[in-house]
């Protein structure tokens, strides 16, 4: 703070102008980022929570948190990876708060008369199967196989090693194959 006041004193009134100018440029950059990144962030969020309203809220929260740190993120940062990290943390937090939800979803495929029974379309069944996996494994599957991020990027996003990503990914795909049965392998 003392430094800041010193800056004000030493650089005269130009300082305030420069600051405002910088902030306007930063806001412009952020607005462009929001326009470019939002559709994909929302879809990734949806694949994680299977609720478009919640996906919208999680996306909004992600953008707000990114703006709060926008000055520190830096121009050369990998914004795609960074935004996924913020989003996934929001998803994990949200799951922790309503940790009962997963169990309920996991029960659904066996309910008699459920439209998503054996005759349901494969993509519906996939989402139900996905929901039975641990949430971090769901994140690995979505980031790797829908977002198409590299193993290293997924590792960076989730803050784990690349070997953990490979191992969990293999295990998760194996589990999905088990749950989805022959259809999944044959198609």
């Amino acid at each position: 703070m003392n430094e800041r006041v010193a800056n004000v004193v030493s650089s005269d009134t130009g300082w305030g102008f420069t600051r405002r100018h910088e902030r306007a440029a930063r806001d412009e950059e952020f607005t462009a980022f929001v326009a470019a990144a939002t559709p994909r962030l929302r879809r990734t969020a949806y694949l994680m929570c299977r609720d478009w309203h919640l996906a919208q809220d999680l996306t909004q929260l992600t953008l707000a948190r990114m703006y709060a740190s926008w000055g520190r993120i830096g121009r050369n940062a990998n914004l795609a990876a960074y935004s996924r990290r913020v989003l996934m943390n929001a998803v994990f937090d949200q799951r922790k708060r309503r940790s009962g939800a997963e169990v309920v979803l996991a029960d659904l495929p066996d309910r008699p008369g459920d439209p998503a029974g054996p005759t349901a379309e494969l993509h519906v069944t996939l989402m139900r199967a996905l929901s039975t996996l641990p949430v971090r494994d769901q994140a690995i599957v979505v980031l790797r196989h829908w977002e198409d991020h590299s193993v290293d990027t997924v590792a960076e996003i989730l803050g784990v090693s690349a070997s953990v990503v490979k191992m969990r990914s293999m295990r998760a795909l194996g589990r999905l194959r088990e749950l989805l049965g022959e259809d999944f392998v044959l198609q």
Binding site: F30, R43, H123
Partner: peptide, 29 residues
Amino acid sequence: HLKDLFDRVLDDEPVPPDGDLAGQAMAQG
């Protein structure tokens, strides 16, 4: 194949809400 299935899941995406998303994010941020 998995990617195709995920794309099909996303087929029923509703129209995103209107509004100044960036402005809201900045205020909240």
